[in-house]
Amino acid sequence: MMMMMMAAAEELGLLECKVCFEPYGPGGQRRPRNLPCGHVLCLGCAAALGGAGRRGLECPFCRRTCGSADTSDCLPLLQLLEAVGAAATSLPPAAAGAAGGGPAGPALRLALGGWGALVNPTGVAACPRSGRLAVAHDGKKRIKVFGASGACVQQFGERGDAGGDVKYPLDVTVTLDGHVVVTDGGDRAVKAFDFDGRGTLALREGFCLPWGLDTTRENEVVVTDSEAGALYLLTADFGKGKLKKSQVIQSKLTSPRGVAVSQASGAIAVVEHLKAKGPNNSSTRVKIFSADMKLIGQMDSFGLNLIFPSRIYASAVAFDKEDHIIVTDVCNQAVLCLGKPEEFPVFKPIISHGLSYPVGLTYLANNSLVVLDGGDHSVKIYSST
């Protein structure tokens, strides 16, 4: 599976710099860097193109000029490199029938975006009332909103905009009252906007690196802080731009990123990213807490490997309407059902083909499954069965 994943990534041109054609790496001169225009170069080429005697770094593809300080790490590609290093085994053909429980496989109904429309997307969320989809990506305007028909109806969050600046979005959620909330890795903030793109709230204090977020049944927002190893609960009047309360509801987590809140039970699922010695030993763990933050279950790559000859690397998590825990798996390019905590271990593929690098996951009100595919820069909507 590792070879298949590498081949797919190479076909999409994701793992090599398009200037020097050298493969990207996690450090040094081969580290992938974003330009403000959305194109990506390795650090070495970015330094050479913006070297001494030049007035700025000129993108070799679109000719837009920027300063060297305006570049940033391309986190999606760094995560892809991390996942490729972690991928060691393939999804076994028998795994689909190895464990029961969970929903049946849905069919692809609609695909949105694509390269040019979306650039290195990192998060997707659905408005519970209107069905509109908010997508965070690294394009000129960082947030793109799609209507129920699939057409783009709004874009905002251009870097440098007064009151609407988004430097590097990591995830997005939509509150029950229709506000788009974004974690910004560029200035380590949590920012809220209305659907017209007007900024209503920006929280820049107290976070080390806010990453994943989701909305609760009470219209509060749960945020993971990857560097602090903590889970925050934010209570705010997003329309008036007033923060009422920010509290740590869980600490001592290991690099938490993706998070999901069950609209049925209030349970919270968190994806931890675990580091180990050796380049291929990274793994993930999904922890599930009850609404009152008691640990009720967890599933990691090692535990699954005791039962199934496969290894998962979870990049996003969600609850379906029946409270099954659903994850995207970049190792196997799949969406998997892990069942309910009391059913663990369950390992049921829901989508096992047609995905390149699934990084985001949500459900629409009609139970349609929405998958954000960072490999082909698209949003894929699967009909419920």
Results as ranks from 00 to 15, higher is better:
238 F>W: 15
239 G>V: 02
239 G>F: 07
240 K>P: 01
240 K>H: 06
240 K>N: 12
241 G>N: 08
243 L>Q: 11
244 K>T: 08
244 K>R: 15
245 K>V: 00
246 S>Q: 15
246 S>I: 08
246 S>L: 14
246 S>P: 02
248 V>I: 15
250 Q>H: 11
250 Q>Y: 05
250 Q>D: 03
252 K>S: 15
252 K>N: 15
253 L>V: 04
253 L>Q: 09
254 T>A: 10
254 T>C: 08
255 S>Y: 09
256 P>C: 05
256 P>N: 07
257 R>S: 07
257 R>W: 05
257 R>K: 15
257 R>V: 04
258 G>N: 05
258 G>Q: 01
259 V>D: 00
259 V>I: 02
260 A>M: 04
260 A>W: 00
260 A>G: 08
260 A>R: 04
261 V>W: 01
264 A>Y: 10
264 A>K: 15
265 S>V: 00
265 S>C: 01
265 S>I: 05
265 S>M: 02
266 G>F: 06
267 A>F: 08
268 I>S: 00
268 I>V: 15
269 A>N: 06
270 V>Q: 03
271 V>I: 15
273 H>C: 11
273 H>L: 12
274 L>K: 12
275 K>Q: 14
275 K>V: 11
276 A>P: 09
276 A>Y: 04
276 A>K: 12
276 A>L: 06
277 K>P: 09
278 G>P: 09
280 N>F: 07
280 N>P: 04
280 N>D: 13
280 N>A: 13
281 N>G: 11
281 N>L: 07
281 N>C: 10
282 S>Y: 10
283 S>M: 10
283 S>N: 03
285 R>F: 03
286 V>M: 00
286 V>Y: 00
287 K>N: 08
288 I>P: 03
288 I>E: 07
288 I>D: 02
289 F>E: 01
289 F>T: 09
289 F>N: 06
290 S>A: 05
290 S>L: 04
290 S>Y: 01
291 A>Y: 09
292 D>M: 05
292 D>K: 13
292 D>G: 11
293 M>Q: 13
293 M>Y: 13
294 K>A: 13
295 L>E: 12
295 L>Y: 07
296 I>M: 12
296 I>P: 05
297 G>E: 08
297 G>N: 06
297 G>Y: 07
298 Q>D: 10
298 Q>F: 12
300 D>N: 14
301 S>A: 14
301 S>F: 02
302 F>Q: 14
302 F>R: 15
302 F>N: 12
302 F>P: 10
302 F>E: 14
303 G>T: 14
304 L>T: 12
305 N>Y: 11
306 L>E: 14
306 L>H: 13
306 L>G: 12
306 L>Y: 08
306 L>Q: 14
